[in-house]
């Protein structure tokens, strides 16, 4: 179904559950990596026209985005978004060395890419296990720029295929540390159909 995402309440609940499984695995991996407790908010499922999503999720402030493309049975994008203050804290926490400036060093760039890589892999593995599919994350890429400019990149490709797009959004925060971030999952429209069909089978609704 192209053009509009039509989902009933049960399907939305199931999708939230899937997103929640993925997001909690992703944040657990971050907690292990940093040896800190990381809390997550209840994952949200947004189904909106791209221009509305960009207006609400974007912004002109400087953020770091790690972009991981998903390939295999499910195609789409996972993105980790952190504001710059959180980036500096996080890199310091992982490397034990305080960041010198807002301009990221090569080492800091690879640390961030690795964080995105680990989180995206755990997210997609959890998704793949739950759905019984093969999902392969591509190598991560990093951009540090205005939030809305980073997000339009991942959303416009989807906007060509459908008027409304679906976004799984989870906010996470470190206990006692000033680190907050968001992890987004955006499946392609065809992959979303596939996920929904699999979920229907799971609950015995048939396709």
């Amino acid at each position: 179904m192209v053009g509009q995402v039509m989902l009933n309440e049960l399907e939305k609940d199931m999708l939230r559950e899937v997103g929640s499984i993925g997001a909690s695995h992703a944040t657990n991996s971050l907690a292990e990596l940093t040896n800190t407790k990381v809390d997550i908010e209840v994952p949200a499922l947004e189904i909106k026209p791209v221009e509305e999503l960009l207006a609400s999720e974007g912004g002109e402030d400087l953020v770091a985005g790690v972009y991981v493309e998903l390939q295999g049975d499910i195609c789409g994008v996972i993105m980790l978004l952190l504001d710059i203050a959180s980036v500096v804290e996080l890199v310091t926490q992982i490397t034990g060395m305080p960041s010198a400036s807002e301009e990221l060093s090569d080492m800091e760039v690879s640390v961030l890419q690795e964080v995105g890589n680990i989180m995206a892999s755990h997210f997609s593995n959890a998704l793949a296990d739950f759905l019984g599919l093969k999902i392969m994350p591509a190598p991560p890429a990093l951009a540090v720029d205005m939030g809305v400019a980073i997000l339009d990149f991942i959303m416009l490709e989807q906007a060509q295929k459908a008027n409304e797009v679906i976004l799984f959004k989870t906010k996470f925060m470190f206990q006692q540390k000033q680190i907050t971030g968001k992890i987004f999952l955006m499946p392609d429209p065809e992959s979303l159909d596939r996920i929904i069909a699999l979920l229907r089978e799971k609950v015995g609704m048939g396709a």
Binding site: V50, E51, L54, E60, M146, V148, A149, D152, F153
Partner: peptide, 24 residues
Amino acid sequence: VGIGEYRVVRPPAVLVSLGLGSCV
């Protein structure tokens, strides 16, 4: 001028679009 919008004006108006990434 938000994403997916356009606007026509006369001076002294200034038109602003924030955060163009892949957008033009």
